[in-house]
């Protein structure tokens, strides 16, 4: 299988979906710029033109409502937020209407297949309002589907699945992953929504990870293998619906659970997965569940503060070793240098 970057995979998924379905259009700030949302909408614009890929004013809430109204008339709009944080302004339409549409109107008003793509920033001094990931907040509300592709194949596959789904779907794409390369099928193969993926099999500890933390967990697992520790990594992929069966099967197998997330612990996905294990796999647990997430403060800008703010491969490896009551050697070497140069 040929390799694509995460950004190329997002683009290919979008283009193939648009080829299959003429009802799909893409809008949002900067979608038709030459930079094309870090390259992910350039090919769609080239292929399908400005009638299907077009810019929008900065009006996140109305734009989401407009997408809902177009979807109610048979369109499949894709609304793009170049940064997650701006999506707070769209919460009324997204949560009060899109998420509830099918239920609240008794199934009689049809469905609103709106897809929202939102990019999560990290590092490079992007600071408190350009780096948040809203997946736990959005996933709290029944009616939305919320997915976080971590690997290039899922960047394409989840895009395809979202654009075939009949309800609203939010895709949270992590900016730090856009350059990640990996095998991606050439055919339009959707990744089913609501299904987690065991991306590395192991026997000692389960790491359930979301988005960028999947890649960090894989890096940690490779290092820990040298120490004789076998880590199973579960890519959560979808936080609503949540694939409880895959998570529980892994926890029951290893008896130890670490959850690594790209947002905060409190009321977040790491807490949800920990609660799932406590309620449904308690007897299989050999020790306390651990959570690894953002430090409990807003995202700082200055480099040493940023370094202390984000969990990374070495943090995961250290936590896994401590869960096994083993002491950690120097692990900082497994964290790649931050060579991000933008565009942010």
């Amino acid at each position: 299988m040929r390799n694509l970057t995460y950004a190329e995979a997002l683009s290919e998924g979008l283009v193939q979906a648009m080829e299959q379905d003429p009802a799909i259009f893409v809008t949002g700030i900067a979608v038709d710029y030459s930079s094309g949302i870090f390259g992910t909408t350039v090919e769609a614009l080239r292929r399908f033109g400005p009638s299907r890929v077009f810019d929008a004013p900065a009006m996140e809430n109305a734009l989401t409502g407009i997408a809902i109204g177009a979807a109610a008339m048979g369109k499949r709009p894709v609304v793009v937020h170049p940064r997650n944080d701006f999506m707070f302004l769209a919460f009324d339409q997204l949560i009060n209407l899109a998420a509830k549409w099918r239920y609240m109107y008794g199934g009689r008003a049809g469905r609103v297949p709106v897809v929202v793509r939102a990019v999560v920033g990290k590092g490079w001094g992007q600071g408190a309002t350009h780096s948040q990931s809203l997946h736990a907040t959005l996933a709290h509300f029944p009616g939305l589907k919320v997915v976080l592709p971590a690997l290039p194949a899922d960047a394409k596959g989840l895009t395809l699945a979202a654009l075939q789904d009949d309800g609203p779907v939010v895709i949270l794409e992590h900016r730090s992953l856009f350059g990640l390369s990996g095998p991606v099928p050439e055919e339009p193969v959707p990744t089913p929504l609501g299904v987690a993926n065991v991306v590395r099999a192991g026997t000692d500890v389960t790491v359930v990870a979301a988005s960028l933390m999947v890649v960090e967990a894989l890096r940690a697992a490779a290092e820990l293998e040298k120490e004789g520790v076998s880590v199973e990594v579960v890519d959560i992929r979808s936080v609503r619906p949540l694939d409880e069966a895959t998570i529980l099967a892994s926890v029951r197998k290893t008896g130890r659970l670490l959850v690594a997330d790209t947002s905060w612990e409190l009321y977040g996905v790491s807490s949800e997965v920990a609660a799932l294990a406590a309620e449904r796999a308690f007897a299989d647990l050999k020790g306390p569940v651990r959570r690894l997430a953002l430090a409990n403060c807003p995202a700082p800008v200055s480099a040493p503060l940023e370094a202390a703010f984000y969990p990374k491969a070495s943090t995961i490896a250290t936590a896994v070793l401590s869960m096994l009551r083993r002491t950690a050697g120097p692990l900082g070497g497994i964290d790649p240098a931050d060579d991000f140069k933008g565009p942010y």
């Binding site: 409502g65 407009i66 369109k75 209407l97």
Partner: peptide, 23 residues
Amino acid sequence: MISSAILGQTIAVATGSALAFKM
């Protein structure tokens, strides 16, 4: 189509249906 309880919400939604008609 629908009514909704949140003030102004359906102004945008109607605008979106109009966008679909124009497209």
